[in-house]
């Protein structure tokens, strides 16, 4: 008798897809080295890695712990392969769950979040592919100085709309982490380049505040 639940099967399929993705991702540099007979000196790779790995490996661990509960099972297996989580997949999943009035971690939340992330991944892949095909025609438009401010401000444009929905519904929990982050970025503007590391700090503050307010019966 088959006793595996839908969620068990999602984990199984997810693991098969993600491990295959890992192999494919690793095969890209291997194929390049073999085809062009261009294995790089190990020291140059290590030196290059030293410049990025300490921060990006840390951010990677943080992202897994922070985003997996938001993205759900299939959403995590898919979202972490297709990337662009903070600027696209996570807001897309959150917005879709909000519209459908379902909660993350429920069966319905899992369905909605997966549909949002999968759709977003397909559309992103198609848009980038069209862009690559039409690169000659698109480059002057996309690089035009008139449009530059639009893309420079994509994160505030995204988090303004998303933030107001969540903050207005949960303003008691939001004030402390928001004030903390604003003051922190005012004092140390250079932290903007490593905002990923600050996500769990914000989460810890809001969880702490939520716990205190909950215990006092204020939520």
């Amino acid at each position: 008798m088959n006793t595996k639940t839908y969620d068990d099967m999602t984990h199984l399929y997810g693991k098969i897809w993600i491990w295959t993705a890992i192999v494919i991702i690793l095969l890209v540099p291997v194929a390049i080295c073999l085809y062009y007979n261009a294995w790089p000196p190990v020291q140059s790779v290590v030196k290059g890695l030293l410049g990025v790995a300490p921060i990006f490996w840390t951010v990677g661990v943080i992202e897994v712990i922070t985003f997996c509960p938001m993205l759900g099972t299939a959403g995590s297996y898919l979202g972490f392969v297709t990337g662009n989580l903070t600027n696209l997949k996570v807001p897309c999943a959150l917005n879709a769950m909000e519209i459908n009035n379902v909660k993350s971690g429920t069966e319905e939340g899992e369905v909605v979040s997966t549909i949002a992330i999968a759709t977003s991944s397909i559309v992103t892949t198609i848009i980038i592919s069209i862009g690559v095909l039409l690169i000659g025609q698109l480059t002057p438009i996309l690089n035009s100085p008139e449009l530059k401010p639009a893309f420079d401000n994509i994160l505030p444009a995204l988090f303004g709309g998303l933030g107001v929905v969540y903050i207005s519904k949960n303003w008691k929990i939001s004030i402390a982490p928001l004030l903390f982050m604003i003051v922190l970025f005012l004092l140390v503007p250079s932290l903007a380049s490593s905002v990923g590391i600050l996500v769990p700090v914000g989460a810890a503050i809001s969880i702490g505040v939520a716990r205190i307010l909950y215990k006092k019966g204020l939520l």
Binding site: L94, I167, P177, F185, S190, I205
Partner: peptide, 17 residues
Amino acid sequence: TAMFLGMISAFMGMVFS
């Protein structure tokens, strides 16, 4: 919800940098 707000706060705070 608090985890979501933590993420949103970090990105909204960054806007002030």
